[in-house]
Amino acid sequence: MNQNLSPERVRADVAELLDCDPAEIAPEEDLFDRGLDSVRIMTLVERWRAEGAATLEFADLAERPELGHWTALLTGGAA
């Protein structure tokens, strides 16, 4: 679990890159279908590594591009 990253922070970071309201993103929604691409995933990886998710890899996010999965991965909780 990363204490610097809250579920709200993860949601807000994703929403910022998708240029949408955080509340619009469903936890189980495929973020690639929403317009997320590999460049934006790398942006998130670097941002979250800087916040303490040192072992986070691109594949961790790309293999299952869902907000709920990412939130659980990064914070140890649910979206």
Rank of each mutant, 00 (worst) to 15 (best):
V39M: 12
L17S: 03
D13N: 09
W70Y: 07
R9I: 04
T71L: 06
E28N: 15
E63Y: 11
L5A: 04
A50M: 11
A12T: 08
R40P: 05
L74M: 10
G52A: 14
E16H: 12
E24R: 09
Q3S: 07
R49H: 11
D13Q: 07
E51N: 14
A53F: 03
L56T: 06
R9Y: 05
G76N: 12
D30E: 09
E63D: 13
L73Y: 02
E63G: 11
L74A: 05
E16N: 06
I25V: 15
A12F: 07
A15H: 03
R9G: 02
A78C: 13
D21Y: 04
A78L: 14
E46H: 12
H69L: 06
T75R: 00
M42Y: 15
M1C: 11
I25P: 00
R11Q: 06
S6T: 08
N2G: 03
C20F: 04
V45F: 07
R40L: 15
D21M: 06
L74R: 00
G68F: 03
P27N: 08
E8H: 04
A12H: 07
A50N: 13
A23N: 14
F58W: 11
P27K: 04
L74N: 01
T71G: 05
N2A: 04
V45I: 14
E28D: 13
S6F: 01
L17G: 00
E66K: 09
A78G: 14
P22M: 05
L5F: 02
A59W: 13
A79K: 05
D30N: 12
V10T: 00
L18W: 02
E51H: 11
N4P: 02
E57N: 14
D13P: 02
E29N: 08
L61Y: 02
D37L: 13
P22W: 00
V45D: 06
T71Y: 01
R64F: 06
L17A: 05
P7W: 00
L67C: 08
V45E: 07
N4F: 02
E8Q: 05
P65D: 11
L31T: 01
E51T: 12
I25E: 01
E66F: 06
D13G: 07
V45M: 07
E16Y: 09
P65Q: 10
L73K: 04
D21F: 04
E16C: 06
